[in-house]
Design a protein around this nucleic acid. Structure first.
Ligand SMILES: [Mn+2]
Ligand SMILES: [Mn+2]
Ligand SMILES: [Mn+2]
Ligand SMILES: [Mn+2]
Lengths: 219, 219
DNA sequence: CTAATATGTTAGATTTATCTAACAATTATA
DNA sequence: TATAATTGTTAGATAAATCTAACATATTAG
């Protein structure tokens, strides 16, 4: 059984690896978790003896297959929890991450199985991220960034990335949510702002900071 | 902020104190928590510096007012969780204690406030124990043990005490649950077994082991 | 009332997860 | 390529929560 600390390292390794083809540096982990490098270094040695991480001095860190699976199962619990909090407890999508960060460590397969069942076996979390299955398999659909779409296209919001509290609250104010269909009216040539329209909002200008964080699918 | 370990000691102190007019011994705590006496001893010193426990060498342990309140608030979270698991997630009353033992330590006032709201501000948990209010105030209604009732009386099951898994499963088999009304048909003079009747059960014999663990109110 | 038993305390060790300081290797820059 | 900056490692310290062994006090029984 992994400790709470070990679980957080596994999750961080998994998340950071996704951004850098499977390889993570001690420094990345250190900054991501706000834990000093020597601490990370010794934890990596420990996870290596547990066959969860592959580590050699001065080389990039990699999760083993076992490590990947265990990490994915924690992410599964995190995302199921977020979905449960939004769907069954009426929390806003900007409120659930902190709570899920704690509940993901609860040791009770029955508890998460029940959430899964009550939610009808959801495939995505409230931010559009895929929920890994019971074997730790996770599939990202092929979404496109809103910033990469062309004028005139009709798109549907599928996921948000870099889901900070402030960003989600901004989206709430603009009434932008998953599933929302919007039309791209034009793209400002100067700064690449995207001008869109959607129900109750005839014209909204979204800066690149925003449009790069919105993943969409074509309608 | 108290650690998980500290919270479990506070809760144990509160629970054991209820059985012994506010005083708890190091030995009681040690056995209850399955933690050796020297460990308990040093934790009591720590909780004393935090003004949660009143401790003097060789004297019984007592929670301070602050300690009592903090303990009651953890018990509040435990019981709200149990109620939520039974009412909203369809767990059996014998399944919820272990999960609540973990969730009671979640740091999120909003999470428990939401449970409370969704449950309609319940006063008791699934075993009939009172849920302390937001100020840590808890009131036990004046129930009587089934074993103390007289022949011919009509009673309603109000709470169960010493709620072990096996006992709750036994009650499930006998279809005995909170709110059930039963009539005391007779009391066996030899061993004080109570013979009762209730819907679908014309005659059930309950041993003292059982009838002493069932709290009832008169109908 | 003494002796045995039970309960409580002190001292010191261990495990886990963290840190700082010092040093070493790698990578980037001039 | 030599030097500087960044990244990584080692060594040793610290805090929390636990333990065992030894000793001290209190309670119980004869
Ligand atoms: Mn999250
Ligand atoms: Mn976490
Ligand atoms: Mn319980
Ligand atoms: Mn607990």
């Amino acid at each position: 059984m992994n400790s709470l600390a070990e679980e957080n390292y596994l999750k961080a390794l998994f998340t950071l690896a996704a951004k850098n083809n499977g390889e993570v540096s001690v420094n990345d982990l250190s900054r991501h978790l706000d834990i000093k490098m020597p601490t990370v270094n010794s934890m990596m040695k420990k996870l290596t003896t547990k066959k969860l991480v592959y580590y050699e001095s001065y080389k990039p860190l990699k999760l083993t297959e076992k490590g990947k699976k265990e990490a994915a199962l924690i992410i599964r619990k995190h995302r199921l929890t977020e979905m449960y909090l939004v769907e069954k407890m009426n929390f806003g999508w900007e409120q659930v991450h902190e709570i899920a960060e704690q509940i993901e460590h609860i040791k009770s397969p029955e508890f998460f199985a029940k959430m899964d069942e009550l939610l009808g076996y959801p495939q995505i979390d409230p931010h559009g991220s895929p929920i890994p299955d019971k074997n730790g398999k996770m599939i990202w659909k092929e979404y496109k960034k809103l910033s990469e779409c062309t004028k005139g296209s009709l798109v549907k919001i599928a996921a948000v990335i870099n889901t900070s509290n402030d960003f989600l609250k901004f989206l709430n104010e603009k009434e932008i949510h998953l599933g929302l269909k919007m039309k791209i009216k034009s793209i400002e040539p100067f700064d690449k702002s995207v001008i869109v329209s959607y129900p109750k909002h005839a014209s909204e200008t979204l800066s690149p900071t925003v449009s790069e964080r919105l993943l969409v699918e074509k309608v």
